[in-house]
Design a protein around this nucleic acid. Structure first.
Length: 874
RNA sequence: GGGGGCAUAGCUCAGUUGGUUAGAGCGCAUGCUUCACAUGCAUGAGGUCACAGGUUCGAGCCCUGUUGUCCCCACCA
């Protein structure tokens, strides 16, 4: 065994340790009937994506939970995978082709798919490798991909079932159309942002008589699709127009004036052009009034032949020309600047056009209801639960889900059309002939499915559903889903209704929601801002453990967090502390036969640290069970740094450096026991360094990953003794503070005179007090007067301390110091006294609280008396 | 228009079902090259818990309102 380096250096071991874990199969899940399963499905990153801070936090949270559960003895499956990300990947591949001067249409579907698969092969491994750098303990033998055979089967099965139930239908409806990607988008895939636009006021002349109606529009180019002008039925200004016709400018068409509640008389001119093919509201109005639907735009955003002479022009060019023509004809009344929200494609950011189009839809109402109920009935719990509200809000207002995409990369819709009889055939496998007419001329629907259709099946498609595989039976439903709140409407919700619909069970018991990782200034990390920080660079510089811990400390579930280098540095410093504490133990244990804890004759300080450890075990376990990772990390660092390093290691030194071999062995026994347990508690958070240190510990074999998680042991909680020892700590701290107060050099050993009822306790811990407080000797006296004239004094819980410090002591300053302390005590007496004087408190508060308050009051009264005496003696 | 978050120390944030003297990290001040660690040790300063009411024996926490701020959804053509 090599010696531990003076400084923690993660590069020496992180990669090596990860390789060992994989080699030993520690991540591989087994359907072990002796154990309880614990399943987590990794939210699959885009196959061509790169690891960013959001992933890093998401993965760290999952890994921490999963390692905790594995050590607790669960049969853990953390299933990793990637998402084909239909539209995102297709956009990237198309861009790449463009750079090569190739249009995707030239390649054709098959050629394009070949390129896309090649792309996937090239970049699909990248994110997987990056996940490994973080220490993710997921089961790589079960690595899934949304377009692999398993998941694809599940997709066809799911589609088939919904189709047969009539929950999938094809129809012409207004959808969001991206002219850039030339595909339909779901509502969730459209991002709105406020754009500076204009309001054009256009005059529509009455047919066959004088007069006109002025309409206002932000998209004049859609006017070629107008099939009516609408006014509010209660609007007296326009009552006489209803039922008449107007002439549609720039065309030879005549359209009716209709009355509809939808129109807001206060807004614009109070008269609205109705374009059912290009506006969702207009579509509804059109339905109510049986208006024709005239689509005037092509898929690429150019105008079609129904736009007359504007045909072939891009939508914005057509707008420009139409406006100028209207102006020439004197029909343009005015133009106003108008800021309004415009939808953009979430992938290519083109302005989305609402367009009427024939698409496939999932009927949502029947699916949403059970998904809502499941959360209402607590079958699935959101953590924190406020996110349930967001979930409800979405599902209660949901519209049918447009699932067809005019793309090539994705799951092709399993529907065929018979050229002979026109039959529409939905099938799990490619049909050879038409089941209706027997014709062999079948063509498959050209469209692919929304990428979220397959991710919605992730919790069970990855386990082999619809087959009743061993994995599916054992590991489904999953236990917890860990994901960001931004993905609830896209994914969480869809997994919920899908799981319930297809498997009859909720896909996960808990949904742990986390926030976004923001930059130092609180801005969202984004590509366009260029403020993203690459986790891999951070790992390169500080190690994965430091990054992991930094991402979890001070984070509350559901809240956004900021990434700062400072946090990572703080984590690195802590880990270095752990490293050195271990190094201290290991070095001192060299050549020593370290006893097991049971064989050690425990000293008070030993009992104290063991008790603290028990407390820590309990708190950390409880916090982790509630997914309070930030609290757990906080409790742990506090225990490790303050209790173990700053106090116990120092307390152990007299024994370690003393002559008594038995005492030395005993101290080492306790040091090793506590360290070992602390490392186990720390392991889920900082897996690499704890594994590395574990290997250095004497008498330890195997991986810490497979060690049993520490359990709270009430026999080792030593409540009374630990409490008593706190008194010793109080004495040490007081002496230190007293020395500082009079500028006594820390190295100067002082003579302590103590007035105390707890002589036995103090004598037992004399060595500790002398060393840690920097004292030369302790004398018990009846009163402070015995210590001499020039003394500093202090009242502690277990004693009064007097230190003769001669010339260092300024009597007046000392008086002020004691007076300040007395004031503080008086305040406490007033507070506690006031509480106890309150009849309501004494009558209604829990007895323990009242008793505690009485004890406190007594304590402070005692301190008061002592302080007053000391002041008088000065 | 609908929904939600946040407001606690100079900064970044924790604060469990309401119950010790409201905490941490960073920063700041002072002093320490003590043989695990200066990526460290010791000591300390720093808070009317946004504001106004209310419930309660008791409120940072629960309720109502106000202000400020951020986000999501819908969206007036």
């Amino acid at each position: 065994m090599t010696e531990m380096q003076k400084t923690y250096n993660p590069k020496d071991f992180e990669d090596r340790i990860y390789a060992d874990w994989v080699k030993n199969g520690y991540f591989t899940a087994k359907a072990d009937p002796e154990k309880v399963p614990f399943t987590v499905m990794m939210p699959p990153p885009n196959v061509t994506g790169q690891l960013h801070m959001g992933h890093a936090m998401d993965e760290t949270m999952q890994d921490t939970i999963v390692r905790f559960k594995r050590m607790q003895g669960y049969s853990v499956l953390w299933l990793p995978g990637t998402d084909h990300a239909s539209i995102a990947t297709e956009v990237k591949v198309t861009e790449q082709l463009k750079k090569e001067g190739i249009a995707k249409e030239e390649l054709g579907r098959e050629g394009f798919l070949q390129r896309a698969w090649a792309w996937k092969e090239k970049y699909g491994g990248r994110i997987v490798e990056q996940l490994k750098k973080l220490g993710s303990s997921c089961d790589w033998t079960r690595l899934a991909f949304t377009m692999d055979e398993r998941c694809s089967n599940a997709v066809r099965e799911a589609f088939f079932r919904l189709y047969r139930k009539g929950l999938i239908y094809r129809g012409s409806r207004i959808i969001n159309w991206c002219p850039g990607c030339k595909t339909a988008l779901s509502d969730a895939e459209v991002e709105y942002s406020e754009d500076a636009g204009h309001f054009w006021y256009i005059r529509y002349p009455l047919e066959g008589e004088e007069g006109f109606l002025t309409v206002a529009t932000t998209r004049p180019e859609t006017m070629f699709g107008d099939t009516a002008v609408a006014v509010n039925p209660k609007d007296k200004r326009f009552a006489s127009f209803v039922g008449k016709n107007v002439r549609l400018p720039l065309t030879d068409r005549v359209i009716p004036v209709v009355a509809d509640e939808y129109v807001d008389p206060e807004f614009g001119t109070g008269a609205v052009k109705i374009t059912p093919a290009h506006d969702p509201n207009d579509f509804e109005v059109g339905m109510r009034h049986s208006l024709p639907v005239i689509r005037v735009m092509n898929d690429d955003g150019t105008m079609n032949e129904l736009a007359g002479k504007y045909a072939g022009l891009d939508r914005y060019e057509a707008r420009k020309q139409a406006v100028s023509d209207l102006e020439a004809q004197g029909l343009l009344v005015k133009v106003e600047a108008h800021a309004h929200n415009v939808g953009h494609c979430y992938r290519c950011h083109s302005t989305v056009e609402p367009i009427v189009s024939k698409q496939w839809f999932v009927r949502m109402a029947p699916l949403a209801k059970p998904a809502i109920d499941a959360v209402v009935k607590n079958k699935t719990k959101f953590v924190p639960d406020r996110f349930a509200k967001i979930y409800y809000n979405w599902l209660e207002n949901i519209r049918d889900w447009c699932i067809s995409r005019q793309l090539w990369w994705g799951h092709r819709i399993p529907v065929w059309y018979c050229a002979d009889c026109g039959e529409e055939i939905c099938s799990r496998s490619t049909p050879a002939v038409c089941p209706k007419c027997g014709g062999a001329h079948l063509t498959q629907d050209e469209d692919v499915l929304d990428t979220w259709f397959s991710s919605a099946l992730w919790p069970f498609s990855t386990l082999g559903w619809p087959q009743e595989t061993e994995d599916f039976k054992y590991f489904y439903p999953t236990d917890v889903l860990v994901t960001g709140y931004d993905i609830i409407p896209f994914w969480v919700m869809r997994m919920m209704f899908s799981g319930i619909e297809y498997t009859g069970k909720v896909p996960f018991r808990d949904v742990l929601i986390h926030g976004l990782v923001r930059d130092e200034q609180g801005r969202k990390m984004s590509k366009s801002l260029g403020n993203g920080i690459d986790p891999l660079e951070v790992i390169e510089k500080y190690g994965a453990d430091s990054l992991r811990l930094a991402l979890l400390t001070g984070v509350a579930p559901g809240n956004d967090t900021r990434y700062t280098d400072g946090k990572v540095e703080a984590s690195r410093n802590f880990i270095n502390k752990v490293w050195n504490a271990a190094r201290f133990v290991v070095m001192n244990a060299e050549g020593v036969d370290v006893p097991a804890l049971e064989e050690v004759k425990l000293q008070p300080a030993d009992r104290w640290i063991i008790a603290r450890l028990q407390m820590c075990i309990r708190e950390v376990t409880v916090a982790l069970q509630k997914y309070d990772l930030g609290i757990a990390a906080d409790k742990l660092t506090d225990f490790m740094w303050n209790d173990f390093c700053d106090w116990y290691i120092e307390l152990s030194k007299p024994a370690l450096y003393g002559e008594d071999a038995e005492k030395k062995r005993g101290a080492l026994g306790v040091l090793l026991f506590v360290l070992k347990n602390a490392l186990k508690l720390l392991h889920p958070f900082i897996p690499f360094v704890t594994e590395e240190i574990y290997g250095y510990l004497p008498g330890v074999s195997g991986s810490i990953m497979t060690a049993e998680y520490p359990r709270y042991n009430s026999r080792l909680s030593y409540k009374k003794e630990a409490k008593a020892f706190e008194g010793i700590i109080d004495v040490i701290k007081s002496v230190r503070a007293m020395k500082v107060a009079v500028n006594c050099p820390p190295a100067k050993k002082v003579h302590l005179f103590l007035v105390s009822e707890a002589k036995r306790l103090i004598n037992l811990n004399k060595g500790a007090i002398l060393r840690l407080a920097g004292a030369s000797e302790i004398d018990f006296v009846e009163s402070g007067a015995k210590a001499g004239e020039k003394t500093v004094s202090q009242v502690c819980e277990i004693c009064q301390i007097f230190i003769p410090l001669g010339e260092l002591v300024d009597i007046e300053e000392e008086r002020q110091r004691l007076q300040k302390e007395l004031d503080r005590v008086m305040n406490e007496i007033a507070r506690a006294g006031g509480k106890l004087a309150n009849a309501g408190f004494v009558a209604k508060a829990p007895k323990k609280l009242v008793d505690d308050e009485r004890a406190k009051l007594e304590k402070f009264l005692d301190m008061k008396a002592k302080l007053e005496k000391q002041l008088a003696e000065l």
